[in-house]
Computed example of a mutant assay.
Amino acid sequence: MSTTPFPSAADERALRRLLLLLATIAGVAVANIYYNQPLLDSLRGSFPQSASWVGAVPAVTQLGYAAGMLLLAPLGDRFDRRLLILLQIAGLSIALIVTAAAPNLTTMIGASLAIGVLATIAQQAVPFAAELAPPSQRGHAVGTVMSGLLLGILLARTAAGLVAEYFGWRTVFAASLVALLALAVVIWIRLPKSKPTSTLPYGKLLMSMWHLIVEHPGLREASVTGACLFAAFSIFWSVLALLLAGAPFHLGPQAAGLFGIVGAGGALAAPIAGKSADRRGPRAVISLSIVLVAISFVVFGLSGASIAGLIVGVIILDVGVQAAQISNQSRIYALSPEARSRVNTVYMVTYFIGGAAGSAVGAFVWPWFGWMGVSVAGLAFTALAGWSHARRRTRPVTAS
């Protein structure tokens, strides 16, 4: 077991190794809330009596993630993050076993909620990176860990689609269990303990987040902007498998998962966006990101029968959403350094409520209005993000 203190900012090689480990933790953990998205058509086949409710699986998982961030992520300011990560891995492992063995959709929905709550391991890794890095490199450090998180989000779909195609959807969750247990061993050996920055009791720790919301208007703006963009992101990814399963494509979960490889190009933009936010300020990066997301949904609306068009749209969407995410997180971590876990919780809870809203809207819009309705809804969420961002144009977040 490692009790090594954090490496200093000057020890760049040690810092780089630690950031890579944190990126791996974030990616492997967050992947669990996205494995189910390319499996929706397979779930309809396994649970035909509840087929109309399969859209609830990704929506409930994301709501669980928001709840986990609200209830568990703030503990990173109060307790050793390493211990929290290991305890959550233990709980997540149990939830994965239940999901893999689920006899009906109701059980799977309940287990998916637990997966969402416990997969918030990733939200201990990102503020940890912000704590380790000097202020001049904070955006780059956050971008590095977020690139791991993004790869987990996108490649989860690819891995789930491939495994489900050849071994069935239950094997997806069994394989995730094995990966988590292997990662737990590495964490036990390599990850140092953290030093708590707060002595507040749990109740007061949660209540203090309300004071952060009131005290920092820029945190509210960043949270709403991020949530609207993630809603747009989620409405696309939660419906993609259903689009590809129907005419004119008639493709299985493998094809939906392979789109994750295309979207993984957005992970390459994460460190670049972090550096740009360090040099030029985050607001300009976010403005450009909103424009990119809007363009992506115009492309989607024109590409309901075109794989090539969908590929172009995915690349634009993922680059835009992730560049905005890195820039938003870089600036909110400067607001209250002693409360980074709680600031991150406020932002990410709002963010994933947006994601759950996007998935829910997608589940409603798809059967009634089809792919064009989904594209219009994604564009509407993007417009809300633009409104939230533009209305605080003259008041920078760091001055909040």
Rank of each mutant, 00 (worst) to 15 (best):
L72H: 02
L242P: 08
F79L: 11
G378L: 05
L19E: 07
L105H: 05
S176V: 03
R190Y: 06
A29Q: 01
P196I: 01
R44P: 05
F47W: 05
A385H: 06
M209W: 00
N36M: 05
W387E: 15
G281P: 14
A377D: 11
M348T: 07
R340D: 14
L200A: 13
Q322W: 00
V185D: 15
R157N: 06
I115T: 12
P248D: 14
W237E: 02
G355F: 04
G370L: 10
A102G: 12
H389W: 14
S289K: 07
M1Y: 03
L317G: 03
L63C: 08
S306F: 01
V262I: 13
I316K: 07
P282W: 03
K204R: 08
L83A: 13
T382S: 14
A232N: 05
A159C: 13
R220A: 11
F230R: 02
G301S: 13
V185Q: 15
L71D: 08
I332V: 15
A232F: 04
L149N: 15
R81N: 06
N344I: 00
S8N: 15
V126F: 06
I316D: 06
W368L: 13
D318P: 05
T199K: 11
G152A: 10
V298N: 02
L292G: 12
K275G: 14
G148E: 02
L243H: 00
W188R: 07
I290A: 14
A175W: 00
R342H: 05
F249W: 07
G143F: 01
I115Q: 12
V298D: 05
L258G: 15
M348E: 13
F167K: 09
P48A: 10
I353V: 15
V28S: 03
F128V: 00
D278Q: 06
T99W: 03
A231N: 12
V319R: 09
V186M: 03
V98N: 01
A90M: 00
A323Y: 07
A184M: 06
L155F: 07
Y65C: 07
V28T: 03
D318S: 08
L70R: 02
I213E: 11
V126N: 11
I85A: 13
V57G: 06
P134Q: 10
L183P: 12
L268T: 01
A182Y: 11
G362F: 05
Q37A: 14
N328D: 06
E12W: 00
A66R: 01
F369L: 13
K204W: 00
A273S: 14
I153Y: 12
I295D: 15
L177D: 05
V319P: 08
M348D: 15
F352S: 06
G266C: 12
L292A: 15
D318V: 00
Q62Y: 05
K193E: 03
D11K: 02
A73F: 03
A308K: 04
R190L: 09
M207S: 14
V262N: 09
Y351N: 15
V343L: 14
L75M: 11
V321C: 08
L219R: 05
A122R: 03
K204L: 09
V214R: 07
L132M: 10
A29D: 01
G64A: 11
G152D: 07
A141P: 05
Q325R: 09
S341Q: 08
V343C: 15
E12N: 06
S223L: 04
A160C: 13
F230S: 04
T398C: 12
Y333T: 08
A59H: 07
F369G: 14
A385K: 04
G355E: 11
S276Q: 11
I353R: 11
